[in-house]
Design a protein around this nucleic acid. Structure first.
Length: 208
DNA sequence: ATTTGTTTAGGTTTCA
DNA sequence: TGAAACCTAAACAAAT
């Protein structure tokens, strides 16, 4: 298969390491708070020409690999031609547009190289064969469901500290500006959740 | 000419 | 850090 030189790997690693985290987007850091002025956020009107026009919503790529997509199609339909698989995927996932040849190439590539899929008889019309799941194929989807369950669990654990960080930010900001009633000032930036609410939503009392 | 199927090559991400 | 999995692109041949 693909060969990769030591130089290539070093090049890739350098590029990967060069991605220094953006402090502005680092929720775990409170460094920004040192320069934070809450009063600057209150009663501020944004000029018309500075109002950002939202980008149209883009269809996100489904969290499935190509083998998983193909398996879903074949499990649902039993046997499909290549064009039938294309059709099923683009019907179920708008991300994969019918007029885009790139992902179709990847689908064909996966059908060819993955022993999970079996090439059957010739299609009754048109070129190509009927594809189905191999008799001894492992069901990829339960693996995916298990993985998603784990990811949800981890996401839940990871998301909670963000809520706490926001609350800590509110406390920290209040300590910086003691005369400012931040919870009644109308500022939407801070999230005035109670400690009980945070604990409840994080499942720290009731469990997961 | 177009679609299908195979193969090769290399980039990218994830995980142990 | 390396290996493996995954993704993407492309070349090419066979079938229709």
């Amino acid at each position: 298969m693909a060969t990769r030189t030591v130089g290539d790997k070093a090049k890739w690693r350098r590029r990967k390491l060069s991605k220094i985290p953006d402090d502005d987007n680092d929720c775990a850091s409170l460094a920004w708070l040192l320069n934070f002025r809450l009063d600057a956020l209150v009663n501020v009107t944004v000029p018309e020409d500075e109002v950002r026009v939202e980008e149209p919503l883009t269809v996100k790529k489904p969290p499935y690999t190509y083998p998983e997509l193909i398996e879903r199609a074949l499990r649902e339909r039993g046997e499909l031609t290549v064009s039938g698989i294309y059709q099923w995927i683009s019907d179920h996932f708008p991300f994969y547009k019918a007029n885009d040849e790139r992902w179709k190439n990847s689908v064909r590539h996966n059908l060819s190289i993955n022993p999970h899929f079996r090439k059957g008889a010739r299609a009754s019309q048109g070129a190509g064969h009927l594809w189905s799941l191999a008799a001894n194929a492992i069901d990829l989807l339960p693996q995916r469901r298990e993985q998603e369950k784990t990811e949800r669990l981890e996401a839940h654990i990871i998301e909670c500290p963000k809520v706490i960080v926001l609350d800590e930010a509110a406390i920290a900001a209040a300590s910086i500006i003691p005369d400012q009633d931040i919870f009644n000032g109308g500022a939407m930036f801070l999230n005035p959740v109670s400690a009980e609410q945070v604990v409840r939503e994080c499942g720290l009392i009731t469990g997961l």
